[in-house]
């Protein structure tokens, strides 16, 4: 995945809560076996409404999505992350995220940023007032900045390091193959196999 250190771009406000992954990418799009082409499915049902915020020309080219709470709940489909990235998003900001979505995002280098609800709303209002407002998401400094605001966010050191280095998780784990083999020798004898 691409390394993420800091990103500055424009943002789009999504004033909805419980944006589940079925909305981010409806199931009919999940039938593909490739990893590409999912941007067409992003919010595909909602995008049919000309009034939907992603259809507003003022927000074209935005790379930061600022959503209401409980973004990415529901299905484990990583296609939701692929769709957001392939559409052009690098960051999603919300007060709360579904656990699986947040995990999937960090595996792919899409940065999920948790800010307090009132800060999310302040950012949404600022972007609505000026859609060209530059917003900076600084992973190294763990801070989101816009206009004269600077709001810190939390992320654990390990995930931050992995994102900043753009490291492949599997490669990291395979360094510990000996530990895995040692564990396997000690597993309980009744545990099932599928054969």
């Amino acid at each position: 995945m691409d390394a993420f250190i800091t990103h500055t771009g424009t943002a789009v406000p999504l004033r909805r809560s419980n944006v589940d992954t079925d909305q981010i990418i409806p199931a009919v799009w999940l039938k593909q076996v490739s990893r590409t082409g999912f941007e067409k499915g992003l919010f595909s049902a909602w995008r049919e409404d000309p009034g939907f915020v992603l259809n507003d020309p003022a927000y074209q080219g935005a790379s930061i999505l600022v959503s209401g709470p409980d973004f990415g709940t529901g299905s484990s489909r990583e296609h939701a992350v692929w769709a957001l990235q392939q559409y052009g998003f690098r960051v999603v900001i919300a007060a709360r995220f579904g656990d699986i979505f947040r995990n999937n995002s960090t595996k792919m280098g899409l940065l999920p940023v948790v800010l307090p609800g009132e800060k999310v709303e302040a950012l949404q209002a600022a972007v609505e007032a000026d859609p060209s407002l530059p917003v900076t998401v600084d992973l190294e400094g763990r801070e989101v900045r816009w206009a004269d605001e600077a709001v810190g966010f939390e992320i654990d050191d390990y995930t931050r390091w992995r994102l900043m280095e753009g490291l492949d998780d599997i490669g990291l784990t395979l360094r510990h193959a000996d530990d895995v083999a040692a564990y396997e020798n000690e597993r309980q004898p009744w545990l099932p196999t599928t054969v």
Binding site: S75, S76, I100, T173
Partner: peptide, 30 residues
Amino acid sequence: GDSHTSTHGAFGGIAFGIGTSEVEHVLATQ
């Protein structure tokens, strides 16, 4: 790779849904 994997916790284990990157991780490393 399905969020309703939590079903299996009914037997007293830890069972959870994962995304495709993690599916690949488990396939490669268990």
